[in-house]
Design a binder for these strands. Structure first.
Length: 269
DNA sequence: ATGGTTGAGCGTCAA
């Protein structure tokens, strides 16, 4: 027996500020599970009633003051998984993992917010860039060291656009943090620990595909200098169950919205 | 080459 599952991911860039936008996401995507990054809310200030009011009574969150923060909102019961390490021993709030209770069995879900990496793509002079590369390498090693992946979904703002057409200009961005070779090679190595890119599954690699447009453009749609920083990966056993993907580009025009747009994948498990 | 904008939360830092 299979069950249809829709999982959405969004870098919301302040949960409290953009709480009123979540009904728009829900109406458009009808996700069973919503994974959020950059919630920017400490746990003691989290709007604890909001998930249930939105129709997602099962929720977990991990936040801190000012920066970072992740949350998972679910219509399905879930169990928190606490087996992952404190990435780079920073005490950051960049990862949550849960087991979703489906009739067909549990699905393991990982929600990641990878460090952005600062401005200078040099690990020797920029500690933020070093942290980003170390984070990706540590995650790669952690998944490599576990049992073979199955029934697993990984989503999040991974802050890396791995393919040539995941950015508006491959040549012009080769030395820009998010698309440098050490980053794209690192992300590819992580993906290859048993994952499959669930969005590119539906969209040929030659086609431009973005999930983020900078605030610093007067007209984001006209300049269209986007990057694909937000991802949904599935373990290889779930590949045959992939049914659809949506990059909710219209969300970039919502009032006072995030610079990232939601990404959703529908699959049968 | 540079600057451009946004959020957290009150001076800048992070993105």
């Amino acid at each position: 027996m299979t069950e249809r599952l829709r999982i959405a991911t969004w870098n919301i860039n302040s949960l409290r500020l953009r709480l009123p936008l979540l009904p728009l996401l829900i109406e458009a995507l009808q996700p069973d599970v919503i994974c959020l990054q950059e919630t920017k809310v400490p746990d003691d200030l989290f709007p604890t009633g909001a998930p249930a009011e939105l129709g997602y009574p099962f929720a977990v969150w991990r936040g801190m003051k000012g920066y970072n923060g992740v949350a998972i909102l679910s219509r399905l019961p879930l169990q928190p998984l606490d087996t992952a390490p404190d990435w780079c021993a920073k005490g950051d709030c960049r990862h949550l993992a849960v087991a979703l209770d489906l009739r067909s069995g549990p699905v393991e879900l990982h929600n990641f917010y990878v460090p952005a990496g600062g401005d200078v793509p040099d690990r020797a002079t920029n500690p933020k860039f070093a942290h980003k590369l170390d984070f990706v390498a540590e995650a790669t090693a952690w998944f490599a060291g576990r049992r073979a992946l199955s029934n697993t979904v990984l989503v999040g703002d991974l802050n890396i656009a791995p393919l040539e057409h995941d950015v508006w200009s491959h040549k012009q961005l080769l030395d820009v943090v998010s698309h440098t070779p050490p980053e794209t090679e690192g992300l590819t190595a992580w993906l290859q620990q048993g994952f499959h890119d669930a969005v590119r599954h539906f969209v040929p690699a030659e086609q431009k595909l973005y999930t983020w447009w900078s605030y610093r453009n007067r007209d984001w749609r006209a300049s269209d200098r986007g990057r694909r920083l937000d991802h949904v990966w599935v373990s290889r056993d779930l590949t045959d169950g992939l049914r659809a993907q949506t990059i909710l580009k219209q969300a970039r025009d919502w009032p006072r919205t995030s610079d990232h747009v939601p990404v959703s994948v529908e699959l049968e498990v």
